[in-house]
Every structure is written in C-alpha cells, then in structure tokens.
Design a protein around this nucleic acid. Structure first.
Length: 894
DNA sequence: CGAAGTGGGCTTTTT
DNA sequence: GCCCACTTCG
C-alpha cells in the first residue's frame, strides 16, 4: 500500500525519512497529523517495523485517540501484528511504572507499583494541611504560588533541601518547609503527582540499566508531537529512550509554544539540531487549513515576536472573507453578538462547527448564557471536568481507599462525607498523631481506636467508619468494579444523602454517579482492572472530552491547540485580558501571549471574528470598567479586516437589562452541573476511546426536550413584533408595545457612556436610563439580537445539556452573514428615533388591573422611577412577572 | 457536631 | 461571581 501519494514533497520526505533523528518544523495547519499517521503506516507497511516497536507521543489523550482512529482507518486492510503505542507522556509513564516500577522501590522508599496518582485537588489538600500544621497564612503566601514553586523546583530536580539552601528570603524557606511536608505526604501515601510520573520514570530509566535496555530494545521508533511544549523531564525521557538508536522524530512549531508557564522549554526544539547534529530538518510551510486572509493576518501578528526562527506559511486557498472585529459595548453585548452571529452562520452553513475561544475560563459563563437563550447546543471544554466533580471524586476516593488504605488524602476527603459524626477536632487529632508517628491516617486511626485515644462519641463514629472501609475493601476484592461502586454508593449512604437532598443539583449529581457506574461497567467489559480505571480517572484531561459532534464548542485558546474549525470567535480581545495583565510586564510572556493569539487565529478555516468589550466587569459585583482594545487587534493589517466599530466611543450595543435578569434566572434554574455541560459525553467518550467504537452521544436531546409546550408560548409569531423594533423604518412608527428590555440597542445608551447626546435627537432622553445617549450606528447592521420568546418555566431536565437546534425561526434578514454577496448591508439611517408617546397623566397605581396588548391581563405590583423612565412590574395571568417601561408598554386599565 | 450564613478577596493558561 | 475561611445557631 502506498502512503506517499497525496502528500506534498516535504510531507513525503518527512514520511520517508525513517532512520535517524528528524526535526519537522510544521507550521499551523500544514498537515502535521497526516504526516505522523502516514509515517507510522509507512514504517509498518513499507519498512516492516513491528507496530509494537513504535511509540508516538502526543500532547493529550484526545490527540492520541484521534491518531489511533486515523491509523486504524488507513491501515484497515493491513494485517497487523500488534498495535503501535500511542500515548501521552504521562500515560506512557504510568504504564511503564505500573509494569516495571519495582526497580524504583530502592530509590524511592515506600514506592510500590500500586501507587496512586494525585491530581491538583489532592495536591492542594496536602498543602492546606501543611499550612495548618505549620501555622502559615494563605494570604501571605497563596497556596497556588507555593504549589507552582514546588512544581518548578521538582522539574528542576531540586529537593526541599536544595530549595532551602538556595533560599534568600524567608518566603522561600517556608516554601521549602512546605515542600518537605508535601513530599513526605506523597511518600507516606505511596502517591505520585503529575511531575513525579515523569521524574520517577526518568530516575528509574536512569538508574536501572535493565529496564532502560529493555525499553530501548522494544521501542525502535519514537515520534513526539508538540515538541515545542515539552519540558525538561520529557526531554530527558526522550534521550533515555533513544540510547540504542536515534530514530526519533519530533514535530513542532516554535510559534505555537504556549506552555512555558508549565515548564515547557522552548530550547528543546530550538536546540534539537545541537543535540543531534546529524538531524534532518524538514519544514512544512504550506497551510491547508485557513483562507489566505486568515493566514496572513495571523502571520503578521506573530511576526511581531522577536524570539522566533521565522518562517512564512503560504497557501493555495482563496482569500476568503475578511476578518471581523466587533467592539461590543460590554461583555454581555459581546456574548449576545456571538450567540446571534452563531445562529446566522449556522443557518447559512449548517455543516459548520463553531469554536468560541477565550483567554480565561471565567469568560465562558456569559457566552453560555447567551447561547442557551437561543437553545443552542454547545459543549464547554474545561472548567470542572467530569472527574473533578465533587461527587465523582468522593466515590472515587472511597474506591481508592478501599484499594489502598494508606491513601490519606482520599481518607481525609471522605471520612465525614456523608456526615457521620466525625468532626474537625477528631480528624485533627488523628492527623496530628499520624504526622508525629510518621504513619498514615488509616494506621493512626486504627492505633487510636485500639488505645482508646478518642472520646466515647468520636470512638464510636470512627469505629463505624473503619469497619465501613474494611467492608468496602472486601467488596472491591470480590465484586466487579461497577457492582463494587454501586455497593460503595449504597453502603456509605452517599446515594441516600443525595436522594434526601432532592434538589436539581443533587439530582444531577446522582446522574453523574450513574454515569460513573456505566463507565465502570464498560471498563469491566473491556477487561480493565480497578487500577486501570483509577489511572484513567486521574489522567483524563479536559481537552480529552471534546465532542467532535458538537456544533458549538467553547474553550480556552490553550485547549484549542491542535484543533480546527470552519468558524472561530476570539472573544475578549482586550488589553489586560488578552494579552493577560500578568504578562504585560514581561517581554517573554508577552511573546507567549502573542503566540497564543496566533494559535487562536490559525484555528479558523473560513471565518474569524474577534470581539472585545469596551466595558467589562472584573468581578461579578463590581462596576464595569473601561477597557482598551487588545494590541493584537491593532497588529492585524487593516486591509484584512472589517472593524464594526468606527471609533472608540461609537460602539454598538445591545443593552437589555431585564433580558439580562431573565437569562440569569434561566441559567440558574438550569444549573445542574455547575459550569460545564460536557460531563456525560465526556466520560463515555474517554472510556470508549480505548476501544474501537468512539461514537459519542448525539449532542441534541430528543425534540420533546427542546420545545416549550406551545400553549405557553406567546400567541403570535414569536419574534416578529420585536423584530420591528430593531429594524425600525426611517419614519417613527407609533411606539409599539414594548417590554423595557426590548429597546433597540442604539436607544439604550447606558448612562455611563461618555458619548455626548447627538444633535438632532429628541430632547427627551429615550430609553430606560437617562440621559441615555444614543450611540450613532456605525457601519454594518445593528447588532440585532433576535430573542425568542420567553420560554415557560423550565421543566426539570435531565443533566444532559438542554440542547437542540434553534426551535424558533427567526425572520430572514441580512445580518452579518445573512447576505452571501455582501458581508454588510448598507449603512442604515441613524437619525430616526421613535417618539415617545405622552406619558399617562395619572400613573396607574399598584394593584391596578391592566391589559397589555400582548401579554393580556395582569396586575401592577410595583412602580419604579418617574416620568419617562417609569417602569412598572406587572404580574400577568398567563406570562408571569414582567418589568415594563410604562410609556412603551401600552397598558390600559381594564 | 454540622448546616447555614456572612464577609473578604481574588481570576491565566493545565498534563 | 465564586470560592473559601470563619461565625453563628440549633
């Protein structure tokens, strides 16, 4: 079989150069994955390399899984003797240590192959405990800082003693002390953290010649993807594995190095030619992904960096659309714009996948709310992943403890969950005892029970707990994993606790636990052990959960690395947010931000829209603060972009105060899984990834869940009347009945806006907030947000994200992409504003029964404000409570 | 002991 | 807005 056809000459060379060290400098979208998969296929078929002699290391499990699929596809007809090893560095290390870890025991006292893996939650728990014992103050020395100091010391192979010796200020001395406690705790629990997985593997291979030789013999071809983001220990691992041969092929792009904060060392890629002087360097510079405009814009931006080898990608593709920059008034407007534009684009291109990318996870919330407002299915990658959820971690902690009682972190986590009368004091006593004796919490508890060291009440409670764990341990020995989990959930009372709580949240948690058992059942079917299951739970990364079927995906730009989408939004392009304020003082950090921007931009195949908000709240409660456009926006050549803002102060806006409230309420009601909604897909996807079948659940629920009962919808075509308000004809019509939040954007100038009132406007301020200046419309259509009607109070939904296609048809219109011929319809008249109807002479009082043209009969329950601004809160018989601007509402006494 | 409530303080990015 | 530590009250 020929795996060379269809490749360009450079790609072909990369595939054919199988012997000796190879450095592939692969620009964004240059067919890197294709090269790797074809290279593996070529090795197997043309060079007759046994598949099991090939190791290919990727950055995420997701990437590994995808690679597995692709290789499976292209080698479908080929009889293979074994499988190539496709792994992340971390999963490879776990595998190696679980297999050959015995040799490590002499070097790392207390180590055994049954080690557990501690994730950052577990790490944090250790740090907190250490702080408490040592009387340290979190405010003076944040946990996170300490943790990252420890992590970077570890990656430099420093011991606590080393850190202590080089300490120049008392803070570092304290960190060294915490570090020591931390290391003790890990060893005590026979646990490894993520750094250890790599470090201990390196130590094992370094010290134990036999293991090293064995792996060197076994793996004769090694490929490493995303090489620019490897760290020191990964580099050393690579060296140790390539001692017998130097058939190592690394693939990377220095412009896409975005993990230096995690210890990634860009020198690894820059110095590869020094490490291997005979290395062959191959450059892949033809981009197959993006339009010319996108590629050029991204290239110009990243060219502002000084620390780079410098390369210029080219493409045969068409120019495509120009990029769009949308300056929103505030972050809510930004979110609504994104949601609205997504709808329009998907209506025109139902086959598109849309990615909404941002710098920080916290930006997702408002965008999610806006998308939900449109009933648009979406997947959030990141935030709290499935295995990070408290309930899952709790049950997993029971499982870990049942398997290995020395896991003190697991024990501390669940000793009183559900509450069983073991209070803080009791736990502290045991913890103290354990620490002084250098033993595990479990041993401490047992010892204290024997010696009657607890009070009577505590003694009884702890005893019950101890017996419980013993019972669970037996059950885990005896039962298949899924049944063991069910047993744990019953026997510990955890399930009962959630059932009794009986809130939407607890229901969702129960669902998550069910899903955990499903995953366990599937693992059992595949013949996996408990240890395998726990390893997965620890190593599954958030990126691994990306659902390829989801049409709209939200994630950080970091998470988007390696992915591509026809349509990409980059949100929050503001100074201080992106580039992030923490990077603004360092040139190197700024360059990394710029590379991140490059990564984000080059994810886009066809359309790229970058948005920013002129005002943004930094914290939930605070005031909105003025922002500045990101410098990266200014680096984009102006001929490649349409900027929808004319000048800084002239910003379109959809400012909808009660909309906002509504959206918030809705999202609160639907808040069954916290921040993310990928939990269920996530877990099955991950566990299936190992098997052959990676079909994911459909991301849309059955139609029944999507649509509201018709009876509860507003009587007429839902959007049309509101739409009139947005596409107001030049001559002011009689003011339509309006809900206060329905004011078109250009009438709802927020009071803080510095814009002076434009000449020619009605003297009376229009809008809900005086002195509402009406920002003049810039070019382009109004950032119309077609809102579906208020749905009824949501029915309790299962914790599958309420999803599905847009259920409400929106009127045809020439929107941002509505017209295939012109990106933007003609500029609209900006001078016309509706005249306000005269205010009623005697305002209706609270309690008055009124008639609304659309909502029917209701009762006024509150009045707010005076004059043109007056708002009334009315409870309608059929539509519930609404806040209306009196002068627009068209209320009649009945 | 433990649920529930208060108040202060911050939000990069994640294998 | 959300998390976390701390307080209060049953």
């Amino acid at each position: 079989m020929d795996f060379l056809s269809g490749l360009n000459p450079q790609q072909r060379e990369a595939v054919e150069t199988t012997e000796g060290p190879v450095l592939i400098l692969a620009g964004a979208g240059s067919g890197k994955t294709r090269v790797i998969t074809h290279r593996i296929a070529h090795l197997i078929t043309a060079r007759h390399v046994p598949p099991s002699s090939i190791l290919s290391v990727t950055f995420t499990n997701k990437a590994a899984g995808e690679m597995r699929n692709r290789i499976g596809n292209i080698l479908a007809g080929v009889g293979m003797n074994g499988q190539p090893l496709l792994a992340t560095f971390h999963s490879f290390c776990v595998r190696l240590l679980r297999r050959d870890g015995d040799a490590l025991a002499p070097i790392r006292p207390g180590f055994s192959k049954t080690f557990s893996i501690y994730d950052d939650d577990d790490q944090l728990a250790i740090i907190k405990a250490a702080y408490k014992r040592m009387g340290l103050d979190e405010k003076a020395m944040p946990y996170r800082n300490t943790l990252s100091a420890i992590s970077s010391a570890k990656s430099n192979k420093e011991t606590p003693q080393d850190l202590y010796n080089r300490a120049t200020d008392p803070r570092v001395t304290k960190i060294a002390a915490v570090f020591e406690e931390y290391e003790t705790a890990l060893r005590q629990a026979n646990a490894l953290d993520f750094d250890d997985l790599l470090l201990e593997t390196v130590r094992l291979l370094y010290h134990d010649a036999e293991t090293r030789e064995a792996w060197n013999r076994r793996l004769s071809y090694i490929m490493i993807d995303e090489y620019q983001d490897t760290n020191r220990s990964q580099y050393e691992l690579m060296r140790l594995l390539t001692q017998r041969h130097s058939n190592v092929c690394v693939v990377g792009d220095e412009d896409q190095s975005i993990y230096s904060w995690r210890g990634a060392d860009i020198r690894n890629i820059l110095d590869f030619e020094k490490d291997f002087p005979q290395a062959k360097v191959i450059r892949l510079e033809q981009n197959y992904r993006s339009t010319k405009n996108i590629l050029e814009a991204a290239s110009v931006v990243v060219a502002n960096n000084k620390e780079r080898k410098g390369k210029w990608l080219w493409t045969d593709a068409d120019e495509g659309d120009v990029l769009t920059i949308y300056p929103a008034y505030d972050s809510e407007n930004e979110a609504l714009f994104i949601a609205d534009t997504t709808e329009k684009v998907l209506r025109q291109h139902p086959e598109y996948k849309v990615a909404i990318l941002y710098r920080t996870n916290s930006q997702s919330r408002q965008i999610e709310e806006a998308l939900r407002r449109y009933n648009r299915a979406y997947v959030v990658v990141g935030g709290t992943s499935y295995y990070q959820r408290a309930e899952v971690k709790d049950i997993v902690a029971y499982l870990k403890l049942a398997v290995q009682q020395s896991d003190s972190i697991a024990l501390a986590r669940i000793i009183n969950v559900p509450a069983r009368g073991i209070g803080k004091t009791t736990v502290e006593q045991a913890d103290k005892f354990a620490n002084e004796g250098g033993i595990s919490l479990w041993d401490a508890i047992n010892h204290m029970l024997e010696t009657n060291a607890f009070g009577t009440r505590a003694h009884a409670a702890v005893r019950v707990f101890r017996d419980l764990i013993v019972e669970l341990a037996e059950a885990v020995e005896r039962l298949p994993l899924n049944e063991a989990l069910a047993f744990i959930e019953e026997r510990t009372g955890y399930r009962r606790m959630l059932e009794q709580e009986n809130t939407p949240e607890s229901q969702a948690r129960l669902e998550n636990l069910n899903e955990l058992m499903n995953a366990a059942a599937e693992a059992v079917e595949r013949g996996e052990s408990v240890a395998d299951f726990l390893d997965h739970a620890a190593l599954v990364a958030q990126t691994d959960s990306i659902d390829a079927n989801a049409q709209v995906t939200l994630m950080t730009i970091h998470n988007a690395k390696g992915l591509e989408f026809p349509m990409v939004f980059l949100a929050g392009m503001e100074e201080g947010l992106f580039p992030h304020s923490r990077s603004i003082n360092s040139e190197a950090a700024m360059e990394e931000e710029r590379r991140l921007c490059y990564v984000g931009m080059t994810r886009a195949e066809k359309r790229l829209i970058m948005t920013w908000a002129k005002y943004r709240r930094r914290f939930g409660g605070g005031e909105q603060e003025r922002t500045m456009a990101s410098r990266f926006l200014k680096e984009v050549p102006s001929n490649l972009v349409i900027n929808m803002g004319v000048d800084e102060d002239d910003v379109p806006s959809v400012d909808l105060s009660s909309e906002r409230q509504f959206v918030r309420d809705e999202s609160r009601k639907n808040l069954y899984t916290g921040k993310t909604y990928n939990s269920l897909e996530n877990i099955s996807a991950f566990f299936k990834e190992r098997g052959i079948n990676t079909t994911l659940r459909p991301s849309s629920p059955p139609p029944a869940q999507r649509s509201a009962p018709p009876a509860m919808r507003p009587p007429q075509a839902p959007v049309a009347p509101r739409q009139t308000a947005f596409t107001r004809p030049p001559v002011a019509p009689p003011a339509p009945p309006q809900v206060s939040d329905d004011l078109p954007p250009w009438e709802t100038g927020p009071s803080k806006s510095p814009t002076p009132i434009t000449a020619g406007r009605p003297a009376t301020p229009v809008g809900t907030r005086p002195p509402g200046p009406a920002p003049v419309r810039p070019i382009g259509p109004p950032p119309v947000v077609n809102r579906p009607p208020m749905p009824p109070a949501p029915v309790q939904k299962p914790p599958v994200r309420p999803a599905g296609q847009q259920m409400i048809r929106q009127p045809e219109q020439t929107g941002l992409f509505g017209d295939a011929n012109s990106l933007f319809p003609p500029v609209q008249s900006k001078t016309t504003l509706p005249k306000a109807p005269p205010s009623p002479k005697s305002p209706p009082r609270t309690g008055t029964v009124v008639e609304h043209p659309k909502y029917g009969t209701g009762t006024i329950v509150r009045r707010e404000g005076e004059g043109d601004d007056a708002k009334v809160v009315v409870i309608f018989q059929r539509y519930g409570m609404k806040k209306l601007v009196e002068k627009y509402a068209g209320l009649k006494k009945s």
